[in-house]
Design a protein around this nucleic acid. Structure first.
Lengths: 345, 345
DNA sequence: ACATCCGTTGCAATCGATTACATAAGTGCA
DNA sequence: TGCACTTATGTAATCGATTGCAACGGATGT
């Protein structure tokens, strides 16, 4: 049996202190208008004196909600891209009294299992899913629980789930067109993890752009990346080993772009004189690295905030979120990492 | 009355399906060894068939724990310094089946109130506090609830709270000594927010170092900062406006150092030829900015992981954490932002 | 004076799981 | 076979708050 080490006050202690029933205490805290003035005053005074806070588990059990929202994030810790997204989410959620739980996914089944269990344990009122990573284990997906979902930065194939995202494909076209417009004809595409929602859409945009520009397939290569710094480093190594090096590098995200730049720069390659690099995301780092990185700026804060608002609204209506697709604008930011290709090329 | 939109299975549904009592179902999931083989098999099969997950609120209410840990973080979103700390925390917590709740503090009373309420609502098994920011509102502090606490990157004045930190003062001495050793005699100290635990300790170290080096007070100035990029920018502006500019800048954290560098570099100041800058923290950015930043590397992952382990151990023992003070090593990383002062100085 | 109605408050059921205690079934030994 | 003892399972109390319904008192209307 658990021992109550410190007798934290319960509702019945407050009731006794105020000389009323527990029902009245509960009402004083939730529907104060329905009480007589003096009763309410007496109760609230007792609440303050005893330092009473309603037990969350008991309330959750009774009312069937927890005021908690899970945010599912791929990768370890809080990757640079997501910090601002989280900030946006946190801001909106807080405004409505919701608390945020972070569920990081690193590919391990244990992590996925705990996330799925949290959802099915009804510990959560809603879930925000990023980048299409819908936690699934043993064939159970969080989309199967009847918990409101909103997707950020991706559309997921569960029916009726609203999504907030930028137009990855169009932005990828802008990336490639920028280099092509500068005169680049030999391009390398540094991809995200295989099958990743954003990767797929961005690659599609890339292919569309090079097709439109009439580039030959042999002038374009694709390097399989992972969205991480390490993937950019690997891409850089491969670049250095190539006989006929591309002059323009299109990276699927900023982290890889920066890893690439750092790697080839150390080998004496000059950016943008020898090779141009364009990233995707617009993380802070992109404006501080050397050279500063031309990239696609995503409205990270707004992505998070908008999705959170959608979810909170749905929860307030106690219904499923209205299925919709909100597309926010991404923007090409031209900085110092891109220039026309060298004459010799 | 709440409506059960989708009849998610309850323990009694499983009991019925397996032909046993609810007690047996509960035991099959928590103490499987105490059941006969065939009974256990029958129950677990029913659990799987129905897709049963125990309701978290009910369990929490009954057993008095939630397997949730709150991490209190100052500032909005997840500041660069904390991303790795969070990663360390998350890794340790996950390993023991704990879930992490993030409580960001932005100075607003509402945020503080919700954090304090969470604690007193017994919604949490333990709390990790960073940088000495103990949420307090209306005179109630989370240290008053009888919830196990562990402090990261600071000691807090509540009695018996374990702390995991680096020796800020010694590291600050190393920062200053590095510049002094290079020959700098006119220094500027860019401080963190007033009264911040780390700021205080680091400034103490700075003062000790300049005293030992016999620098005159007039050769040293202190700029009030805020740990943010903006604070570094302000410090840079002030630097540019000074008649007799210092040659060495000691920053209380990396973000400000980078803000400073970017600001003065835009005005034509060369780093490290004209002025040397040293930061504190060792965030990723410090290795990607231009020039790369000499700084103190904190073992960020380990700070988080160690603290989380301490807390989890205490929770496992169902007691208060053993009060202790774990000091991890910080390390001076010399990069390109520091060099001897210009001859003319 | 009596019926009616409204605003307050209390009583007790309820949310869903865990677990102390009771009980039934099985095991070993004399 | 009978008794003590262990093991497996069921019964029902319990965690702490919320809330439908009942009850009560006072005001109003006829």
């Amino acid at each position: 049996m658990q021992r109550r080490t410190e007798h934290l006050p319960r509702i019945r202690d407050v009731a006794k202190a105020a000389g009323v029933s527990t029902a009245t205490v509960s009402r004083a805290l939730t529907v104060p208008d329905k009480l007589r003035h003096d009763t309410k005053a007496r109760v609230l005074d007792a609440v303050r004196r005893l330092g009473y806070t309603p037990n969350a588990a008991a309330r959750n059990l009774r009312v069937g909600t927890s005021k908690m929202v899970l945010v599912v994030i791929p990768g370890r810790g809080a990757p640079p891209f997501f910090s601002e997204v989280l900030h946006g989410i946190d801001t909106e959620l807080s405004a409505d009294g919701y608390t945020m739980i972070m569920g990081t996914l690193d590919g391990s089944p244990e992590k996925a299992r705990r996330v799925v269990d949290l959802v099915f344990a009804r510990h959560l009122d809603g879930v925000l899913v990023t980048s299409g990573h819908v936690p699934t284990i043993d064939g159970r997906s969080i989309a199967d629980a009847s918990v409101p979902l909103v997707s950020i930065c991706a559309e997921i194939d569960a029916p009726g789930v609203p999504a907030v995202l930028v137009d990855d494909e169009a932005c990828a076209v802008a990336q490639a067109d920028h280099l092509i417009g500068l005169g680049h004809r030999r391009l390398m595409y540094v991809a995200g993890p295989k099958g990743n929602y954003n990767e797929v859409a961005r690659y599609r945009g890339f292919l569309a752009a090079i097709a439109r520009a009439g580039l030959a397939r042999k002038d374009v290569c694709r390097h399989q990346g992972d969205y991480l710094f390490a993937g950019g480093v690997a891409a850089g190594r491969r670049f250095l080993a190539m006989r006929e090096q591309p002059t323009g590098i299109v990276c699927c995200n900023d982290e890889m772009a920066i890893g690439f730049m750092k790697t080839v720069a150390q080998a004496g390659v000059r950016i943008p004189a020898d090779v141009s690099v364009v990233g995707f995301d617009g993380i802070e780092l992109a404006d501080f690295c050397e050279p500063t990185l031309t990239t696609i700026r995503q409205p990270r804060f707004d992505l998070g905030a908008t999705a959170a608002r959608l979810l909170v609204d749905a929860l307030g209506r106690r219904g499923a979120p209205a299925p919709q697709r909100i597309v926010l604008a991404g923007e090409l930011i031209v900085r110092d990492s891109t220039a026309p290709p060298p004459k010799s090329a």
